[in-house]
Design a protein around this nucleic acid. Structure first.
Length: 473
RNA sequence: GGCGAGUUGGCGGAGUGGUUACGCAGCGGAUUGCAAAUCCGUGUACAGGAGUUCGAUUCUCCUACUCGCCUCCA
């Protein structure tokens, strides 16, 4: 049996991964709040934990892994968005959920086994809150229910914080009904025009953190193996999840391995709207970003996986271009091959070993690249890691000169024929002036000109401008 | 202020107590009418200081710098 090692935030060490039950390895990853398109940073944990999911499925078997990722569909940001836009909340959440699935699918991410929505688990949340109150870990005050952090001795252990220190440096406004400034909301009252559910504390809605505790308990049990998310969630979200879950179910361990991915940057800076470097996954896919070209989902995936998940990931146009070239190279080598049957294929040891070592995806990509001399192996392994999908390959095959990643808005075959004819004539006359003139024009238009004994190819590059070809017709 | 991460060659980015990362760019060659693409070959490195050690880029400590979180955020 292969040994997977994972860096556990809880212990700050790289540990051998041993599941509670090898027949049912359980992983929970915090999903999106559905109020808008997922931005690029939202996509990183999705891709990272998709790789872990694939690895676990390989090691323990596809039927022996349960991966849960939630949708937060009740939240003040959603309420605000509804008020601003005048749209129904359900309309917003349903639309955004669908967008999310489409966008993440484009990145080659498999869908989790379960994708629970917070609003479907309100009764379970209420039950858990009641248990916390009964156990002396929470109290009701002015329509709110708050978790009492002092009732949980190890509160702050995950992120390495002490309650007293946090109070000293806290920037939060302290609500008068809080016994301790660090107490956090489990349930809060709703105005008549806000979404709400009846509860023992009046009509209201859950606080942000309780949903993950309630849903992971329902779907994975009081103890499960892996809990993942971005490291910005470590505090307070994950800390609060631990407090809630461990106090409500003291016999359970909650999550045993905590994995956190580092944040994403853009051209060396934090992605933010004020810096003008903020974009969604859809922006990239549609070419609506500073790079200006349509970035295929697999290119985004490649860029993500070329940096280790625990290091800051810097998105740059240059990286995207390099990733695109590499994938085009792989595509060129494998386009005429058929993927091996599922039963007859085993991921290469080099790739598995790389991933076993705390998801060294960069090294796994290097291992893939080393398979260029064995295209069948490259194809199978690339597909196993979420590249060279059927859709991508179909697109490649449809494009005339074999380039998948650039949308072909014009038919270049006439130009190719014309250049080929001119070249043929020049070969005999030894006068290459006309050929050179044509070639220069094509290059100027952003085309790559490939002439060989096999013939002539015109390949659109990122700056291809079809209008520059008009004078040639 | 508290907590945490990082600093590797022109760039990106792995890894290791003593031996080649890899990719891109560069350079040389093959190929080409010339190119492009492709193929072959090739150079440059481990922030600074102290310590442990036969030996450290790799371990320990200190310094500097960068970054993230602590407020909605993945």
């Amino acid at each position: 049996m292969t040994t997977i090692k994972l860096q556990n935030t809880r212990t700050r060490t790289k540990e051998v991964f041993t599941p509670i039950d090898p027949d049912n390895v359980r992983m929970y990853v915090c999903g999106p709040t559905v109020y808008d398109r997922a931005h690029l940073g939202n996509a990183r944990p999705v891709v990272v934990f998709d790789v872990l999911y694939r690895l676990l499925r390989h090691v323990y078997g596809p039927d022996h892994v349960t991966y849960v990722r939630n949708f937060t569909d009740v939240d003040d940001k959603i309420i605000k968005r509804a008020e601003e836009s005048g749209r129904e909340i359900s309309q917003i959440t349903e639309e955004t959920t669908q967008w999310f699935l489409e966008d993440m699918g484009a990145l080659g991410a498999l869908e989790p086994d379960a994708m629970p929505r917070a609003t479907e688990f309100i009764p379970q949340m209420v039950t858990m809150i009641e248990e916390l109150i009964a156990g002396g870990h929470a109290y009701a005050a002015e329509g709110h229910v708050l978790f009492a952090v002092e009732s949980y001795k190890t509160y702050g252990a995950l992120s390495g914080r002490a309650v007293d220190d946090m109070i000293a440096g806290a920037r939060v406004e302290v609500a008068p009904y809080k016994r301790n400034p660090m107490d956090f909301v489990l349930w809060k009252p709703s105005e008549p025009d806000q979404p709400g559910w009846d509860s023992p504390w009046g009509r209201g809605r859950p606080g942000w953190h309780i949903e993950c505790s309630a849903m992971s308990y329902e779907l994975l049990g009081e103890s499960f193996d892996i809990h993942g998310g971005g490291n910005d969630l470590m505090f307070p979200h994950h800390e609060n999840e631990i407090a809630q879950s461990c106090c409500a179910h003291p016999k359970g361990e909650f999550a045993r391995y905590w994995l956190h991915n580092e944040m994403l940057q853009v051209e060396g800076k934090k992605m933010s709207k004020s810096l003008g470097n903020f974009f969604t996954v859809r922006d990239l896919l549609d070419g609506n970003w500073s790079g200006g070209w349509k970035v295929p989902g697999e290119v985004i995936r490649f860029v993500f996986l070329s940096t280790h998940y625990r290091k800051p990931m810097d998105w740059t146009a240059k990286k995207a271009e390099e990733a695109k070239k590499r994938l085009e190279d792989w595509m060129r080598l494998t386009v005429d091959l058929e993927p091996s049957e599922k039963g007859s294929f085993e991921p290469a040891a080099a790739a598995i070993e790389a991933l076993n070592d705390d998801l060294n995806t960069h090294l796994a990509l290097v291992a893939l690249n080393a398979m260029r001399s064995d295209p069948q192996k490259l194809l199978d392994n690339a597909r196993w890691l979420g590249f060279l999908s059927d859709d991508t390959r179909e697109g490649y095959k449809r494009s005339q000169s074999g380039v998948v990643f650039v949308a072909r808005s014009v038919d270049l075959s006439a130009h190719e024929a014309r250049l080929a004819a001119a070249r043929q004539a020049a070969m005999e006359s030894k006068d290459f002036a006309e050929v050179d003139r044509l070639k220069a024009t094509y290059v100027e238009a952003g085309l790559e000109v490939r002439m060989s004994k096999q013939g002539v190819e015109l390949v659109p590059g990122p700056n291809f401008d079809p209008t520059k070809l008009e004078g040639l017709e």
